[in-house]
Design a protein around this nucleic acid. Structure first.
Length: 598
RNA sequence: GCGCCAGUAGCUCAGCUGGACAGAGCAUCGGAUUUCUAAUCCGAGGGUCGCAGGUUCGAAUCCUGCUUGGCGCACCA
């Protein structure tokens, strides 16, 4: 049992103690003129042109859909409704009377929209110094300060290998942990192992009857898996084995020493294997509490429900009738045994008690939606107001050839095999493209595993994922390596341009379109991280990284940093450095590494 | 039967919770490398946003119905 309430052994740490206000410049006096300030000042200017207070201006300063339209825009539909004049007319009248702030290069009405182009020099010198100051820890915010969130993720069953589909809960959950830490939340990432149930009785029978003596001492997880398969084969010929399995599980529940010893070994073997894979993925939990951990808390959980007066006995089972067309929630079966739901109730009570969370998330596949609706409903009926702050974070299933892979059918793809294949493929590419690279094994791991992780996180969670090797291993275009490669190129430039001569960069020299496009994206990183955390969507970060990488690759292709005017060169190097920080921080939020060479 | 989720280019997906002619990547075709890593860049073709109504000045986005696919519906987890 590992229980580290607020550990943060994590390569995207949230600062001291993993909580409280972040170390960035959010709280320092000189935070520069970030995108927010530009928007606020635009708002004030528009309001003044209309002779009203900024707070009375309806709508937001937005980003136009296409760059040619401008950098910021204000749409006049809301005003039009309010003052009953055509929006086109309003837009052009504001444009005429507007006295725009100095950082605005041009303001013009385009139909019902008021579009602004920012002066590239002001944009760059207003936003880049802040990013430079924050370095690799940019993207942090403080809206979660003082709040605690518990995130239940990964949560595999022991005695089986981590299959490829486990990457979904594992990496989505891990990313949500990082995102919340970045925004100032105190985070407890919990791995709720499936380590209890009759299947362990089956394994015990298999070990006792079908395995050689001393099997468990040196057994690997694969060995356990073989036992599981062997049991099912044997029980077809000898159905009484099922009863024996139930007996063994009962022995385990009753604390029988031999049963307990076997189960403990199953758990050890499984965790050793899991930890190896988690290690490769950079995944760390703050607590690993299996279902077994809640065994002695089930009775009190059930008692709490009964005391709340919400239970009834139906067909011999103890249930909580629920509204909303939901089937009743079952707390205790006819035979007295408890269920998954019972354990989740006990776990929720425990988590509330030990973490006092403001928000609790369960990262599981969408198929469990009903279970969680029932869970939250029961907790609500038990009188816990915090039940309304629990949330199921569903994701689409991983399909293989249109089918769900299952252990029993033997067509499951193991997570580690996918990682190995991706690393192997990356190593081949490195040998082909960059034969002189040092640490090629390490880089191949960062890039290959990163590609697999990115592939999992780049789309919205709810989308089903069709597993195709060609897709997972395609490293061109919208993929992890595309982003990592941008980061590598940035470091290539920084290496060759040297540390500079110590003079501060004059960012107002960045006036090229490719420079401005890139700056505009970097300036939006902060709000992008906030949005990803708010919407519980790592894909928001992934999409942002693709866009930013594309802008950087374009910049890299069209403009040169080294050589030419020394001041421009220095300013560009600064831009490259900021891009590197943003890319690295963003990749970190997805649980990916950012190598400096590849 | 009831419920939840999804349907956008040949394929995989964005589309900022109602706004500007629907955008990327892959695949196809055609270009770019004496220069900071071509895992890159540029261009071309490719769309009745599943269908039909409705709300609205305005709908891929909201509502209703239908349709297709996935998942779930008390003694599994």
């Amino acid at each position: 049992m590992t229980l580290r309430p607020f550990g943060n052994a994590d390569f995207y740490e949230a600062g001291p103690a993993g909580c409280g206000p972040p170390a960035g410049s959010r709280h320092s006096e000189d935070r520069g003129r970030h995108m927010e300030i530009f928007r606020q000042e635009m708002r004030i200017a528009i309001a003044r042109a209309l002779g009203r207070a900024p707070a009375d201006l309806p709508g937001e300063i937005e980003f136009p859909p296409r760059r040619e339209m401008g950098d910021l825009s204000y749409s006049c539909f809301a005003l039009s409704k309010e003052i009953k004049r055509p929006p086109q007319e309003i837009a052009s009248s504001i444009a005429k009377s507007l006295s725009a702030p100095a950082f605005v290069e041009s303001a013009s009405a385009q139909g019902p929209y008021l579009n602004f182009t920012l002066r590239a020099a002001d944009l760059a010198s207003g936003t880049l110094p802040e990013i430079e100051r924050q370095g690799d820890s940019c993207g942090r915010g403080s809206e979660g300060a003082g709040k605690t969130v518990v995130i239940d993720y990964s949560s595999p069953n022991i005695s089986k290998h981590l299959a490829f589909h486990h990457i979904r809960s594992t990496m989505i959950g891990q990313s949500l942990c990082r995102l919340h830490r970045a925004r100032g939340y105190r985070v407890a990432g919990v791995n709720h192992l499936g380590d209890w149930g009759t299947t362990f009785g089956k394994l015990m029978v298999a070990v006792k009857r079908l395995a050689p003596p001393g099997f468990l001492e040196g057994a690997s997880l694969s060995g356990l898996n073989d036992m599981y398969v062997a049991f099912h084969k044997a029980s077809e010929a000898e159905p009484s084995l099922e009863d024996e399995a139930r007996r063994w599980f009962k022995l385990l529940e009753d604390g029988d020493a031999e049963a307990r010893a076997m189960w403990t070994r199953f758990r050890e073997i499984s965790l050793a294997d899991f930890n190896r894979v988690y290690g490769r993925l950079g995944v760390v939990f703050d607590a690993i509490t299996g279902e077994s951990f809640f065994n002695d808390r089930l009775d009190s959980a059930i008692k709490a429900a009964v005391d709340a007066g919400i239970t009834e006995v139906s067909r011999g089972a103890l249930v909580v009738p629920l509204g909303g067309g939901m089937p009743p929630a079952m707390l205790r079966k006819q035979d007295g045994a408890t269920l998954y739901l019972t354990r989740d109730i006990a776990a929720a009570l425990y988590r509330r008690l030990s973490y006092g969370f403001d928000r609790a998330l369960y990262v599981t596949d969408a198929g469990q939606a009903l279970h969680f609706r029932q869970l939250f409903e029961v907790l609500g009926k038990m009188g816990f107001e915090w039940a309304s702050r629990m949330e199921h974070v569903p994701f689409g299933v991983l399909l293989m050839g249109g089918q769900k892979g299952k252990t029993r059918e033997g067509n499951v793809v193991l997570l580690e095999n996918v990682l190995d294949e991706a690393v192997r493929r990356t190593l081949d590419l490195i040998i082909e493209k960059n034969p002189g690279l040092e640490d090629r094994e390490e880089v191949a791991n960062a890039v290959g595993i990163g590609a697999v992780v990115f592939n999992d996180l780049k789309n919205k969670r709810v989308k089903d994922v069709n597993f195709r090797w060609e897709e997972v291993l395609n490293f061109e275009g919208d993929a992890g390596p595309y982003v990592q490669y941008a980061h590598v190129r940035a470091h290539g430039i920084l290496r060759k341009s040297g540390g500079g001569d110590g003079k501060a960069s004059d960012y107002s020299l960045l006036r090229e379109k490719d420079e401005k496009d890139l700056v505009l994206l970097l300036a939006r990183f902060d709000e992008t991280v906030a949005k990803a955390a708010r919407e519980l969507e790592p894909s928001v970060i992934a999409q942002f990284l693709l866009e930013t990488s594309a802008a950087f690759h374009r910049f890299h292709h069209n403009l040169r940093v080294i050589g030419g005017d020394a001041d421009v060169s220095r300013a560009r190097a600064g831009l490259v450095s900021c891009t590197g920080h943003v890319l690295k921080a963003g990749l970190g939020l997805l649980g990916m590494r950012a190598p400096e060479k590849m």
